[in-house]
Each structure stands twice: as C-alpha cells, then as structure tokens.
Design a protein around this nucleic acid. Structure first.
Ligand SMILES: [Zn+2]
Ligand SMILES: [Zn+2]
Ligand SMILES: [Zn+2]
Ligand SMILES: [Zn+2]
Lengths: 167, 167
DNA sequence: GTTGATGTGTTATGTTATAACATGTAATGA
DNA sequence: TCATTACATGTTATAACATAACACATCAAC
C-alpha cells in the first residue's frame, strides 16, 4: 500500500493490485488464523489455498483437481470439494455461483457478505466488501428472516471491455 | 392460515398469498406479453410455465422434465433447458443459483433485479422486488461497471422454522 | 419453390458434485 | 496398553446438472 491518489475512491475495482504482497499477506493470514483456531493447515489445504491465491481468479473444482494432481496429490473429486468446503467455512474461499467456480477471499479479516462483480467479457472477478459496494444488506423489511449467508453477484461488462466492444 | 396475531405487521414474505389469483394473473400476463411481443406461446412453453407457476416453488430442470414427460412432451434435457432459457430471457422465470432450480417470476411486470430469500430448513423461497428488499443496487461506487444481471440470494432461516428449531 | 427463421426432437457427451466406504494417524483416557 | 474417538485423506462409483450437434417440421418471405 504505497500510492494513494485522488481517484482512489472511484470505482476501479478491476485495477492492478500488488499481488505479490496480496499473496504473502494471504498466506500469513491463513497461517495465523489456523494456529489461533487450532486448525490444521495441512499440505493439502495449504496447496489448495495457494492454487487459488496464486492467480487470484476463480477456478473450477476440476481445474483445482488437475493442479493438485500435478503437485502429486490425489485428484479425485471429493478431495477438492472437501477442502474447498472447509476453506469456505472458514472464510478463506468463496464460491462464485454464476461461474461454478471458487476464488480466494480478498479480505478474510472482514466478516462479510461479499459482492462479486463479474465481467462477462474479460471474465475478471472482483470481490467488493459490504461497505464498499454501497449495498446495504439485511433489509429492515426482511426482519422476519435470519440471514446466514448471501450470494450477491453482479454480472455485466467492465468499462475497459465496453470501450473495446465492436459497434 | 387461521391464527392472526400481533406479529402480523412484520415482514411476512413467506406468508400465504392467493395463489389461485396469482396463477390466473400470471397466465394472463404471459399471454399478453407474448402477443404484444409477437412471440409464440407454444404448448410446450405454456406447459413449462404452468408447471412452474402451479406450485410456485423452485423446481430443478429434471423435475420439470419428468412433468413434461407425464404430460406427453418429450423429456430429454435440451427440451427443458431451451424453454427455460427462453422464459428467463423474457423475465417470466428466474434461476435460483443456490438451488440449481428454476422458479416462476412473482412479478414479471417489474423490470427488476430480484432478491431471493431462501429458508434452508423449509426450503421456501420468496422473490422480493428491488424496492421492497431495501437493497438499493447499482452502487454509485461501482460506476465503472455496467450491471446487466444480478444474482442476489439471501439464505438463512425463516422465523417459523427458527421457532421450531431444537436447541 | 427455395430460403431463412423458428421450434421441437434425439443422441450423445460434458461438467459439476456427492455418497459410501476404507485407511492412516494422532490425541484421549480407561 | 490398548480401546475409543476425532480428523484428514484416499478410492470407487454414481448422481445431478447442463450442453453440443445434428435432424426434422412448419411457416412466412422473396
Ligand atoms: Zn471474501
Ligand atoms: Zn472486463
Ligand atoms: Zn421476478
Ligand atoms: Zn422456513
């Protein structure tokens, strides 16, 4: 986190971020969390998380399985699904329903109801936190219902792709 | 539905509605729309919509296929998926991503970004319109992105089920 | 009467996810 | 010490969801 400019507040949710730092932070965070919660960050679990944080984009379960195979782990479906469920449960991974894919959380520290913004053209996906999305959740008018989990996905086209679109 | 007590005024999004009327209205609406748009409301399309509006709950594509089969239509997968895509495109059906299921729209007149409220216990699903959900969408802070489609699903437990839950 | 658009049918296959059961390992604690 | 338990991983098989590709019929337009 170095450069802070004026247009920071604007909506460049797909813009460059320092993924080197992001990657390192993410690994540190998951390690700390697992220690603190007395959970086992096994080689398999670590590998799955690394695969997801590596490019930091959504991957299908079978893509992950392939990479697990390459890395010498078993690559039968339950392996991936179980670990993914576990990582989701602990907030380090989210499922992007619209893509049947899994993505490393961009900010596990937040206890969040994340919003995913998905460009249908370049297929970039951004996770936007509750506050930033301006999407004020648990509606006062749905009080008779206890929200446990949300799926909020906004699909469309990012400005870059829109500008590039043929007319 | 007999007992009406105090807690009436709260958000009874799962409450009884006059589905006889709902059903009739829905059929009329789709007929009108198809005429107006010069689309063909073929027997197959009508049947699929009727199946969905009948119980007005989410059905998987293969459930629909079974019912189509019973009604004398072909029941091979593409039949259902094609018609569902068509009905979705025209706003009469939505897909509930969290359930891999399809549900008749509760108010096709609204040009909407609907919210689905899903009880994980009784599996009831309510479609809440943009305004009612209190969920004010297209955030000013995501302006650099043109939203074309939204998936908003709130999963949790309804008050009825919560009260019935073992502790 | 050929062409193109549309709607349905069929076969086969692809993709995503889970059930059920087996094995290994480590901590617990009679 | 040796059951008991919890947990993590592995394996096989199958379930559930979805699409590709091609065939055929109808109908309106040219
Ligand atoms: Zn997140
Ligand atoms: Zn884009
Ligand atoms: Zn609707
Ligand atoms: Zn309920």
């Amino acid at each position: 986190m170095k450069k802070k400019k004026k247009n920071e507040n604007s909506s460049k949710i797909f813009e460059y971020h320092d993924h080197g730092a992001c990657f390192g932070d993410a690994i540190t965070q998951i390690e700390d969390y697992f220690i603190q919660k007395k959970l086992q960050l096994t080689p398999l679990r670590r590998k799955v998380f690394e695969i997801l944080i590596e490019d930091h984009k959504p991957l299908g379960a079978y893509d992950i399985l392939d990479k697990l195979g390459e890395a010498g782990f078993s690559s039968s479906p339950p392996i991936a699904y179980r670990v993914l469920d576990f990582l989701i449960e602990h907030g380090f991974v989210h499922k992007v329903q619209g893509l049947n894919a899994f993505i490393a959380c961009s900010n596990p520290k937040h206890s969040h109801f994340p919003t995913f913004v998905i460009c249908r053209k370049c297929e970039k996906v951004a996770e936007v936190s509750e506050e930033k999305s301006g999407l004020n959740l648990p509606s006062p008018r749905i009080t008779n219902f206890k929200i446990e989990k949300t799926t909020i996905e906004l699909t469309g086209i990012c400005s870059t792709c829109e500008n590039a679109e043929i007319r």
